[in-house]
Design a protein around this nucleic acid. Structure first.
Lengths: 155, 155
DNA sequence: CCAATATTGACAACCAGCTGTCCGTATGTA
DNA sequence: TACATACGGACAGCTGGTTGTCAATATTGG
């Protein structure tokens, strides 16, 4: 039987895996009426959050996925007309991406629905709980990130 | 700009996605020397935790994945000799699974290494933080599980 | 100006989940 | 027993992530 701190950590990691699976599944069902999937919703969100045309590698970094993973979704969203390319004045082969009007409308509609849902469950999760959770998740992410991509060791 | 409670929830969900990705990647690297992947490590862990021969659907439920997902890993582990079938006296087509000696040895070795790692980072995450996080993740999982398990508030 | 190196998109292969379908086996009920 | 339903394995196909390789484009150094 391992020490209690090891058990807590193990349980937390397993809970992350489980929550991830549940949330992906729920998200897929949630945005299906809008013609989206969890992954595309997330990508639209990253583009909306960026606020300006942005290239693939930066989007990938901001989402914590690889360049190729982001590229795949970006190309799919491009084919669906939710995202458009803009020429990158600083790089001929790496265009910038931004939401189309339709992409923006779709995203806004989904966000309105998400806002409703989030408010409806905000009663059972206190702000401080969420912030503690956020901090723990950030720490765990940080402690297990790629050694060559970014090393952020302060302390 | 959404309300703060909605923002916290959104940030937490995104942090779950990110932590999940980082931990899967880290786990793959961590157990590669043992000839495992994150998914197989998890499966070995579920079998070890069960403590007795167990059938596919129960393992799937305990891991929060589908029957088919669990079955796939189980068959791969079977082919690798880390897991073995035992006849199920109550169901002819659904055998029970348990660790082989090699599976047990491999799992024990990985767990010893994990124990080391977990202890080494237990200093930066307090017990109470982990427990709060665990609770939040469980609540989020519960609120977003399959609709036939529990109802959602979508109107 | 040219050579060496780093970035980047495209493509392929792979891993690990999911769903759907088919068919055999259990189970409950009349 | 007989039938209807539920459960579970095999298989196929899809989604979404990963890595590796290659060719084209930037960037840097001599």
């Amino acid at each position: 039987m391992p020490e209690p701190e090891v058990e807590s950590l193990t349980a937390t990691v397993l809970a992350i895996f489980k929550a991830n699976g549940q949330l992906i599944g729920w998200g897929d069902r949630f945005v299906a009426p809008f013609g989206l999937t969890s992954a595309r919703w997330q990508m639209l969100g990253a583009l909306a959050f960026a606020g300006e045309p942005i290239a693939t590698p930066r989007i990938a970094f901001s989402m914590g996925v690889t360049r190729q993973g982001a590229r795949k979704q970006l190309n799919l969203l491009l084919a669906e007309g939710l995202v458009c390319k803009r020429p990158n004045p600083f790089h001929k082969r790496s265009p910038l991406y931004e939401l189309t009007d339709e992409g923006r409308r779709t995203y806004d509609a989904v966000q309105a629905a998400w806002n409703e849902h989030a408010k409806s469950i905000s009663g059972v999760l206190s702000q401080s709980e969420l912030e503690t959770t956020l901090g723990t998740l950030a720490t765990l992410s940080d402690l297990h990130n790629q050694p060559d991509e970014a090393e952020d060791d302060e302390g």
